[in-house]
Write a protein that binds this DNA or RNA. Structure first.
Lengths: 203, 203
DNA sequence: TGTACATCAGTGAACGCGCGTTCACTGATGTAC
DNA sequence: TGTACATCAGTGAACGCGCGTTCACTGATGTAC
């Protein structure tokens, strides 16, 4: 647990190290409450009070961690579809990237989407524009991808239905591995069912 | 915070009061970690050590609370469909009851389904039979209801897709109320889309 | 009917622990003159 | 070039708190004889 002091003007570097330590602790323990200020300090190799130069309190660390998770997710979604032009395949790639993020960082995913931001103080007002919501960017990508697959009466509704399905699968599969989950591909196909262009079905 | 001692032979009554106190605390605070042994004792109007006559440790209280939540959910599902014979309407009533439970007891719902029971000690082995899983009974009802709506190649897959959709919607709607959620009826219709008998669609 | 004893349903005080946060500080690196 | 001072990047000790758990106990209610 040795660590050299940062040079002059590089004090801000510790900020990143603090968030990284908090992220590592979350991903290893699986519990948001395991992110204690003292624990993060220990992990980062610094004294506990040193954190206060960078964050006003414990909560601010977690907030930063969550914001970073959303940014990372959005980046992964963007990267996943940048080389694909076919709308149907783009949509599927997007879904796969979404699930991949939840797979690689299950606890960050859960904490990011699972924190209750009810109607109390610090919560968004009811009329908040989507892009400003946490994860709003990622959802916007989903809506666009869904809309691109064909003429739909309500692409936002379809995207929402797809999103809740992806989210439910991601969280439940991580939390209840003993459940006899279908193949990921079959699951995705089933979730995308109602977003596919429908036509006559024989029977 | 006055409370009379239980009569002889009625000591077990305190057990229920403890679980009820824990449930109330969870539902009021929204945090699983707010269920502290001392807090539960205060709420129940007893001294902290009195709990040890009924539970070996703090965790056992939460386990009991979760088991109770699953039983309650299953009961609500059963009650919701008992007077309906039409398979399609039965399925929809089941979904509505499921969402109603998550609505009435959002935190109990989240804790019940959200606790990570990974592959560590105390977790179910991979081959566990469904009914033994927490919530397995409720899921079984869903599978039956889906299967009853028509001939399907894989009703379990369809039920799973529906379940993850319901779960995702229930948890996200509770956690992110600022999102522009569609009408619950529209949402449900969208989630049930791929379980409805498909036929030719005009376009 | 009395009385000694057993059981039941709890209590009060204490333990050690990790937590978030405050406080006054320290030593290295830069800047003014 | 020296030197006084400012700033930066942290530290060590201490605070009060609530926690889970253990311990020896108490008083009321029942049972044996």
């Amino acid at each position: 647990v040795e660590r050299a002091k940062n040079r002059w003007g590089e004090g801000a570097r510790l900020r990143e190290e603090i968030v990284a330590a908090a992220t590592a602790m979350l991903e290893e323990t699986g519990s948001e409450d395991a992110i204690t200020l003292r624990g993060v300090a220990r992990r980062a190799g610094i004294a506990a009070p040193s954190i206060y130069a960078h964050f006003p309190d414990r909560e601010a660390i977690v907030n930063t961690l969550v914001a970073q998770a959303f940014t990372e997710l959005d980046g992964m979604l963007a990267a996943a579809v940048e080389d694909e032009r076919d709308p149907v395949r783009r949509l599927r790639l997007l879904c796969e990237a979404y699930l991949a993020f939840a797979d690689v960082a299950p606890h960050r995913y859960r904490v990011a989407f699972g924190r209750h931001r009810g109607t109390g103080p610090g919560s968004m007002p009811a009329g908040t524009r989507l892009p400003q919501l946490s994860g709003g960017q990622a959802f916007g990508r989903l809506v666009e991808a869904v809309a691109a697959t064909g003429d739909r009466p309500d692409p936002v509704l379809d995207a929402t239905a797809l999103w809740v399905g992806l989210h439910g699968y991601a969280t439940l599969a991580a939390g209840v591995p003993a459940f006899p989950w279908p193949d990921r591909e079959d699951m995705l196909t089933a979730l995308l069912q109602h977003t596919l262009p429908r036509g006559p079905v024989s029977t």
